[in-house]
Computed example of a mutant assay.
Amino acid sequence: MIQRTVSSLYTPRNEQGFLGAGHVARSVLTGGFAKTDPFIFLMDDMLDKKDDEPAGGPHPHAGFETVSLLIDGEIKERLESMKKGDFQLMTAGSGTVHTETIDGPTKGRLFQMWLNLPRQDRWVPPRIQILPAEHVPVLHKEGVTMRLYSGSLAGIHSPVKNYTPLIAAEFDMEAGADISVQFPARFNAFLYVISGTVQIAGKDVNHDQVAWLDVSDTEDDSNLTMQAGENGARFVLYAARPTHETIVSYGPFIADTQAEIADLYNQYRNGKMKHIATTPEARKLTY
Rank of each mutant, 00 (worst) to 15 (best):
K35P: 00
R269N: 13
H207T: 13
A233D: 05
S222Q: 00
E219G: 04
E142R: 03
F183G: 02
S94I: 03
S68G: 07
G31K: 01
V198L: 07
Q16F: 09
H207L: 12
P165I: 15
M43E: 15
E15K: 08
G95N: 06
A62Q: 08
Q199M: 08
L117V: 12
F64Q: 06
A92D: 05
A62T: 07
K284W: 08
R13D: 06
S158V: 01
L191M: 12
V193C: 12
D178R: 01
T145W: 03
T164R: 05
Y163I: 11
Q120P: 09
M82P: 11
R109Y: 03
M146Y: 01
T5V: 07
P184G: 10
M146P: 01
S152E: 15
D220I: 00
V138M: 10
I156G: 06
T5K: 09
L110D: 10
H135L: 09
G108Y: 11
L115R: 06
L47A: 13
T279N: 08
K141A: 00
L89A: 14
H275V: 01
H59Y: 12
M146S: 00
D72W: 14
L139H: 00
H61F: 06
G104C: 03
D263T: 08
G22Q: 09
T286G: 01
I128L: 15
L131V: 03
